[in-house]
């Protein structure tokens, strides 16, 4: 349609996609397409860069300063000493191991529960809409709301769950029981998300393949492990990656349930406390950068371990 100017906002010529693969890099049409592509992506890219890349750079800069908000005049460059302080402090390592524990345990439980939930959503013979609707409630609900519901449930003299315990037990005030309750809240809230991602994977398993396996004599368990799981592998890995990174960032649930008391604080809680309780921007920023590095390592490990199946590689 070289004969007419495209109005702004109108889509490009319909043949763009089909003939695209024939195009040499420098033809006029390809140049136009390329320019339009960049133009359309530019706002999103600029926003994402401005709000993440720049601040993270700034965080690195702040982390190299002694910068206490109570004494801003004393700010000065101190090199890596903030990192030294953090990495030699037992607070950091306690928080780190707590976070890791919560992440590994909750993701493992979620995978199993989520798979079950996905199977129920996928295969149930009636009430499918109702089941899916109710499963979306934990996904959609505000984490803080859910956390309060759990907190009250476990509060002695108030909650229905606390009543089940020997009287006087306050599970949220002891480290291990509190950690398990945090995991419970986390699992309740995010299992539906895991289940939905797995459901997408289940939809990719052809019904006929399962029937073929059944005719070939596979038991239900064999059909699950030998046919469904291998075919769902990409979906499982995506779900695991997203949930692992998400769990590592855990904040809301802990903040409401224990506030990080009794050594139940995650690294995010620690960073927040250093910023807003201790008002130490330098240390807080160092923790921020360390968390960023941890998440980077987790993501990198996933991509390295699972290579082609990682979401980045899946994207065309």
């Amino acid at each position: 349609m070289s004969t007419q100017a495209e109005p702004a906002g109108a889509p490009p010529p319909a043949e763009a996609e089909r003939t695209g693969r024939h195009r040499a890099p420098l033809s006029a049409g390809a140049r136009q397409e390329r320019r339009l592509g960049w133009l359309l992506c530019a706002p999103a890219v600029i926003v994402m860069l401005a709000v993440t890349a720049y601040p993270i750079g700034y965080a690195v800069y702040l982390s190299l300063q002694r910068y206490d908000l109570r004494f801003p005049a004393q700010a000065e460059f101190v090199g890596l000493s903030n990192y030294g302080a953090v990495l030699t402090s037992e607070f950091w390592w306690d928080a780190f191991w707590v976070t890791l524990f919560i992440t590994v345990v909750s993701v493992a439980i979620e995978l199993v529960l989520g798979m079950g939930l996905a199977l129920v959503m996928h295969r149930t013979i009636f009430w499918r809409g109702t089941v899916r609707t109710s499963v979306l409630v934990p996904y959609g609900i505000v984490t803080v709301v859910a956390a309060f519901s759990w907190q009250y449930a476990w509060t002695p003299d108030l909650g229905y769950l606390a009543e089940l315990l020997p009287s006087g037990d306050a599970p949220l005030t002891e480290m291990w029981s509190a950690l398990w309750l945090i995991i419970l809240a986390e699992v309740w809230k995010t299992t539906p998300f895991m289940a939905l991602l797995l459901l997408a994977g289940l939809a990719l398993v052809p019904e006929e393949t399962l029937k073929a396996a059944m005719v070939d004599g596979a038991t239900p368990w064999q059909r699950f492990t030998k046919v469904m799981v291998p075919l769902m592998k990409p979906a499982i890995l995506v779900a695991l990656l997203f949930r692992t990174l998400d769990a590592f960032r855990i904040f809301d649930n802990i903040y409401v349930l224990t506030g990080g008391a009794q050594n139940t604080g995650s690294v995010s809680i620690l960073g927040y406390d250093n910023l807003f309780t201790a008002l130490n921007l330098g240390i807080g920023s160092a923790i921020s950068v360390l968390i960023f590095i941890c998440v980077g390592i987790i993501a990198f490990t996933f991509v390295k371990l699972f290579g082609a199946a990682a979401p980045g590689a899946e994207v065309k």
Binding site: I56, Y58, F242, R249, G271, Y272, L275, F292
Partner: peptide, 16 residues
């Protein structure tokens, strides 16, 4: 960015 830990941005954004 989908994987980015928000807490890492809290301190710089707070200051900025």
């Amino acid at each position: 960015i989908a994987m980015f830990p928000p807490i890492s941005l809290v301190s710089p954004l707070f200051n900025i």
